[in-house]
Nucleic acid binder design. Structure first.
Lengths: 205, 205
DNA sequence: TCCCAACTGTACCACGAGTCCAGTTGACCC
DNA sequence: GGGTCAACTGGACTCGTGGTACAGTTGGGA
């Protein structure tokens, strides 16, 4: 039984690394089995097809991403109890984290599948959707907490503002990939942070 | 000679529609030649491989996108000569345009190729990069004009702010694709517009 | 000792990209 | 009217990849 778990997660590790590097379509089963040192038959024993692999990867990725956000904002909360400052610290930590990741953060997985969605079945697409809706809910909640304390200087759609966190990260990652630069995503997050500072700044100015 | 030009752009039309709908990899040469009513041999007469097709598509796309921005902000300028208000009107027009496009705007082409870049050769990647750098320059210039008149309330990196236009559009399009909603990109642009309003607002408050 | 989950290995099919190439069509020119 | 050349057609072939099928091997636990 341990053997199975090992092999399965080894496949997922290799696949994830390769998908983040080259995209899903460009990642062949051949190279996964070579990397994981198993036979083709072994691969199909664990995953009935590439869709099943994609689903498993997304599930695992979303889980770790959620834990990462939990941890990030928990650490931020420890440093400051105020919801706005907690958010600002959390975003700073996120930006630092993004800057440290040379090949740039798994956020890609979502965009990567979104842009090739015809290759995937409904299960994968639903997972993708669920992940983004989850982040929307998370950040929307945090922004509402902030708005209770600091009245926003302009009225904004809170769902859209929640989405903006994901959107800015994803957009930043697209820029980063296309430009072959390394800190665009983190810069974009810092700009978004400035946005929040301005939006929720006390009215005295 | 006319025949050649016709066929070539017919191929590009069909390919572009299909790529925007399904992604590059999922678009087969088979279906392109079927749509364009030519033979496989005919396709390879015009494009030596799929990379050549991608390059031609990107070139054409970037050109029309640039013209679109030219037109958009020219119209905005006609309505208001002030650089900030011109920008705000232009973004509003952009948001409206994005909202009207059901399947969501060709911005995809850039992200789509960015996320499958191993499938493409250096020529395609360079084009991609050039496009984003072009937009950076364009918007950076506009923001600097604004900053001459309205001192920004927070110091921001102007290159990054320029990138943010592209980034917010691309990120919005990713959300839109993944969520299967239709107005995320336009909402995100409107939020970015609010950002600019706050950033360049006169200090009196 | 036997059993079963976790594999290996091989043979096989479908499909799409890309090559090669011989032949056809039609516009334009002498 | 005949020649030329660019713009094709059509078919045969290779190769890589996803996916199926299935028979056989291995190793740890009851």
């Amino acid at each position: 039984m341990d053997r199975k778990v090992d092999t399965r997660s080894r496949i997922l590790d290799i696949a994830e690394a390769s998908v983040l590097d080259k995209g899903f379509e460009a990642t062949s089963i051949e190279e996964i089995v070579a990397g994981a040192q198993i036979s083709r038959g072994g691969f199909f024993y664990h995953f009935k097809d590439k869709n099943a692999l994609a689903r498993a990867m997304l599930e695992r990725y979303i889980e770790t991403e959620d834990l990462l956000y939990d941890d990030l904002f928990a650490r931020a909360r420890e440093l400051n109890d105020d919801p706005l400052h907690c958010m600002l610290i959390g975003l700073k930590l996120l930006a630092e984290m993004l800057a440290e990741m040379p090949r740039g953060h798994p956020g890609c997985v979502i965009a990567s599948t979104a842009y090739q969605d015809r290759l995937f079945d409904e299960g994968v697409r639903t997972l993708n959707r669920q992940a983004i809706l989850g982040w929307r809910k998370r950040f929307r909640g945090m922004f509402e907490e902030i708005a209770k304390v600091y009245e926003p200087r302009e009225t904004v759609n809170m769902d859209a503002l929640g989405d903006m966190v994901s959107g800015v990260v994803e957009g930043g990652l697209v820029l980063q990939r296309a430009l072959r630069e390394h800190n665009n995503a983190s810069e974009q997050i810092m700009l978004f942070r400035t946005y929040l500072k301005l939006l929720f700044a006390p009215k005295l100015s």
